[in-house]
Nucleic acid binder design. Sequence first.
DNA 1: AATGAATGAGAGTTCATTCAT
DNA 2: TATGAATGAACTCTCATTCAT
Lengths: 200, 200, 200, 200
Amino acid sequence: MADRNQPRYNQKKRAALEAAAAVFAEHGYHGASTTAIAEHIGIKQGSLYYYFKSKQQALEEVCAYGIEDYVSRIDGIAAMALPFAVRLLAVFQSHLSAFRERRDAMKVYNDERLYLPESARTELHARGSGYRKTLEDLFARAVQKGELRADLDCHFAALTVIGIGNAWGDLIVRDDTLDTTVLAQQCADLILRGAVQAEA
Amino acid sequence: MADRNQPRYNQKKRAALEAAAAVFAEHGYHGASTTAIAEHIGIKQGSLYYYFKSKQQALEEVCAYGIEDYVSRIDGIAAMALPFAVRLLAVFQSHLSAFRERRDAMKVYNDERLYLPESARTELHARGSGYRKTLEDLFARAVQKGELRADLDCHFAALTVIGIGNAWGDLIVRDDTLDTTVLAQQCADLILRGAVQAEA
Amino acid sequence: MADRNQPRYNQKKRAALEAAAAVFAEHGYHGASTTAIAEHIGIKQGSLYYYFKSKQQALEEVCAYGIEDYVSRIDGIAAMALPFAVRLLAVFQSHLSAFRERRDAMKVYNDERLYLPESARTELHARGSGYRKTLEDLFARAVQKGELRADLDCHFAALTVIGIGNAWGDLIVRDDTLDTTVLAQQCADLILRGAVQAEA
Amino acid sequence: MADRNQPRYNQKKRAALEAAAAVFAEHGYHGASTTAIAEHIGIKQGSLYYYFKSKQQALEEVCAYGIEDYVSRIDGIAAMALPFAVRLLAVFQSHLSAFRERRDAMKVYNDERLYLPESARTELHARGSGYRKTLEDLFARAVQKGELRADLDCHFAALTVIGIGNAWGDLIVRDDTLDTTVLAQQCADLILRGAVQAEA
DNA sequence: AATGAATGAGAGTTCATTCAT
DNA sequence: TATGAATGAACTCTCATTCAT
């Protein structure tokens, strides 16, 4: 188990990670075979263990990889001073395009992380709920500023936004023709304005 | 494999179905073992095959069982002449309480149906997309009547509503303290009015 | 994993146990393959797991089986009121014939038990050291009665007797022509009288 | 595979040999991994093959190393003209201290040599039985001289002495507090005088 | 003199499935 | 109606071995 920072190793390790993500995404953790993962990168099954200590550890790494930059991007959004409407759009944009860029790993994080042992799951959970908290905070501050209605349940709203993002993310993964930019706009629009005709 | 209509058989068959649903829901299709399902109803592994031809067939039946009355209920909602707001509430109410009543089976339908072979999947898909179409239609008619704004993308809206329902359904399954009535109201409210302060 | 006391099960289980003992004895625990054990009783490798939860558990059971009646017999010897010379002969006789009757299992107990995990090993150790203590006691009482010389280190003597028994046991296992009765007599004789010419 | 006689190579080769002995002694031949052996001397697994052609060859060399000087020492003992009692003490002393000095290798020779292929085993066997023969001869000559009783079975006696030596050797290896000098004396004493009270 | 990377064979284990009873 | 017993295929994982560098 080489841990050098040599570029050749890192390159192959990354390939292994993405292969694992792809196969986990398609067949689920339990339905995925290490043989299939290995074939994805053109090595023999046993050789996978040069890159992963175990199948389970591969799942851990894929999950972490899946939320890594998706989670980190929200801090950037929270940091900038922008109207809530713009921020919400950015959140959806970021969430949906994460599904495009690391589609498999994100799907795996969403659907398969519960098969990890407690210890690994809680570590991941910490990062994921950081995301939710930041988002909730965004809503709360917008309520304070009067951008959103005062009776809004921010916790509920944040979870719903994440739910919508994940639901569309799932569809995006399966349908390449969907345009994330348009979709993000539609999502933000619906959340902001609702479906009811404005009585202007 | 006796398919007698005797009540005792049906009773046990239902128990087997629910056991399969429970185990599939907890461990996923591939992670579930027939031993675990059998133990759930206090019989031995081999005896399961008296009720199911195969593990896969059990999955098919669980999935069908999972959407059965949830799908059928929407026709009732569509049939009655009611304001859209009431209908949408009813849709969420029906969707979320389905997760309470047949939680395991619905979760399995949502998460595991993709592991079915094409043939079985398309049959289920037909029923599921009937649901979506009816819902889409509900939106379209409300737009026509002027209840909803004219520029609403009804296809998008229907899918989003389903996505929200499933996302909260997932949370409901894991958290017994959530109140489906309140949640349905919040969901409907958000979709209808949006989060933005009405500029009355 | 059936735990019934049905004779047919017990019969096959015993056969499995003896097959495991034979293969462990010949190749050592790590060198033994479950395939080889299964073939010994004419079943397929996977079917072994109907009788043993794991290879390791098979080792535990073989070890327990190996000392079971060998250990229990010494209590009988200790209970009877006999001159020490007769007792010692009985001890050797019992020890060596145990190697004849359960040769494989005893060899496995001696040579492979250290590959068991702590927990299992200590449980076995308790039984084994009960044997040593009883034997030591036999020596001590004989010293008190004046049957043996007063300066004898009974702990040392007991361990040496066991060592001799095991050493010859090992040879017995490999050489069918050795006569355990004669051997037992020789051993007892050597320990009692020593090799030096009596200066009578 | 450079077999240079350079001191640096020999030094490392010796280290590799002792590492192999240590790991074989602890885990048995089949339970030992080349990785573990390599780690013992701080090199990588693949590098071991610079010192050994194969794992099996490592076992051969360890076994040979294990009996090398233990076997050679008995010739010295046999060569000197000494009373049998002194000689026997020297034999035990030599045997037991060999376990102290090359404990791992001796243990490996005793316990693992049977996993070698016939050819290698017979070569080792020759040296081992030379030891036994010399010892047997020592007994025979002592009987002739009247030092030992005439009815002594010298073959039996020699094997028993070796058995005792190995049994205590095994205990010595695991228990550092045992004093080989005292032990050797006790062993010799028991063999010579027996346990029975002399009827002086 | 040593390593990183890979391999292929084999291990132990699980499991859906079958079937005589 | 259900079970005990077995199977065979698949699976994850380990390991001795090789070899270019």
